[in-house]
Amino acid sequence: MRDRATVAKAIREALDVVRDDGAPIDPEGELGLDSTQAMELIMEIEERLDVSIPVETLADARTFDQLCAGILRLDS
């Protein structure tokens, strides 16, 4: 069982790896990644949390918060 803080931290770290502009993360804004970055992001998150993120979770994750919520739902 993962808590929100753990998941949020993993996403933040993954975003830092993938993006190189160091811009602040807007939890409710779109993640704004191109397709390659998006795949790299998912890989980084999967490795940090040891999960496999299904395609439906990605389809619903436009923002940081939505991605976080989607990953938390995988546990339930």
């Binding site: 779109e30 993640l31 990644l33 397709s35 998006a38 395609v55 439906e56 990605l58 389809a59 619903d60 994750a61 436009r62 923002t63 939505q66 991605l67």
Partner: peptide
Amino acid sequence: AATIHLGGRSAY
């Protein structure tokens, strides 16, 4: 096609 981008549910 089986391709979806982040948050791309409705487009797909």
